[in-house]
């Protein structure tokens, strides 16, 4: 039987910095972000980003955490026991077996974004697989307020995956293709992803091409998260974390609606939560050592 192509499936990956010798470092800490759709592990050495991995979350949180951890450690010469302190975060944070402590993903994303984009970031939009959070923080990356949608797939990565599958376009290509249109269409009018799918099928029937439908859905999604972030109030500077931050189709349309550019960083936007957790882990380990 031919294997059905899964267009929503994004690439899993790991990375580590060859120029850092982790054994020369004093404190090795890690953050494990077990999200509803993806899991990330970040390892930092004395506060410097050293290694990370990003994988799809399986049906079992502890296994997902273990798999992502061993993938992050792959070829680094490090063992799990070399890590001084581990913080778990994300939807499955209470089920991270190697974690010494669990911290909410909202706190971790703010902390991670503060590291990635610098102390000037005040508003963070974390666009995850199954939820979307608008977070306000201070110059140290401490959360001052937040709003979140975790009830509805509209405005989440899952919604975009459904569309990638419907239109048979790889999820990584969605953003770029959504700009290959001769005009910007009206957004898809249905809020609900299920109804939007029906609406899109109707548009295709009317002769719209795939890219035009992607453009219409991307702007609907941008508008959906815009309403969330507007309710919280946007204070510059503004940054986007999570998987959707890589989708320029949504990001650019959201920037247009906000009249504000999102900050950019060399660091992968999807690891912000795990990175924040690793930074908390370092601070917690230092505190623990001081007490001794």
């Amino acid at each position: 039987m031919p294997q059905k192509k899964e267009f929503w499936r994004w690439k899993e990956y790991n990375w580590h910095d060859e120029d850092i010798d982790p054994h020369a470092g004093e404190i090795i800490s890690a953050g494990v972000d077990v999200g509803s759709v993806s899991s990330q592990v970040v390892i930092i050495v004395d506060g410097k980003l050293y290694a990370f991995s990003s994988m799809r979350t399986g049906s079992d949180s502890p296994d997902s955490a273990r798999n992502a951890m061993s993938w992050a450690l792959e070829n680094t010469g490090l063992e799990i026991d070399d890590i001084n302190f581990v913080v778990g975060t994300g939807y499955g944070r209470v089920n991270v077996p190697m974690a010494h402590k669990a911290i909410t993903e909202i706190a971790c994303h703010a902390r991670g974004a503060n590291f990635m984009y610098g102390p000037k970031v005040r508003t963070i939009l974390d666009m995850g697989g199954q939820d979307c959070k608008a977070i306000r923080c201070d110059h140290r990356g401490k959360v001052t307020n937040f709003l979140m949608n975790d009830k509805c797939a509209a405005g989440t990565g899952r919604g975009m995956e459904v569309f990638a599958d419907l239109l048979q376009v790889s999820i990584e290509d969605v953003g770029e293709l959504s700009f290959k249109v001769d005009h910007e269409p009206d957004p898809v009018s249905s809020t609900c992803v299920v109804f939007a799918k029906t609406e899109a099928a109707g548009l295709l029937r009317q002769g719209w091409n795939k890219n035009l439908v992607l453009a219409a859905y991307s702007s609907a999604m941008a508008h959906r998260v815009f309403t969330l972030i507007e309710r919280l109030g946007v204070e510059p500077e503004f940054a986007i974390t999570g998987g959707i931050a890589k989708n320029i189709g949504v990001v650019h349309r959201l920037e247009d609606e906000l009249g504000m550019k999102a900050l950019s960083s060399d660091i992968d936007s999807q690891i912000a939560g795990a990175l924040g957790a690793a930074l908390f882990a370092k601070a917690l380990y230092e505190k623990k050592m001081k007490k001794k």
């Binding site: 049906s59 009830k151 509805c152 797939a153 899952r158 919604g159 459904v162 609900c192 992803v193 299920v194």
Partner: peptide
């Protein structure tokens, strides 16, 4: 899950 999209995943998890 309240959302039909999320509920579908939940149903699959329940089946598993």
């Amino acid at each position: 899950a309240q959302c039909a999209v999320f509920a579908e995943s939940e149903v699959v998890s329940l089946l598993h």
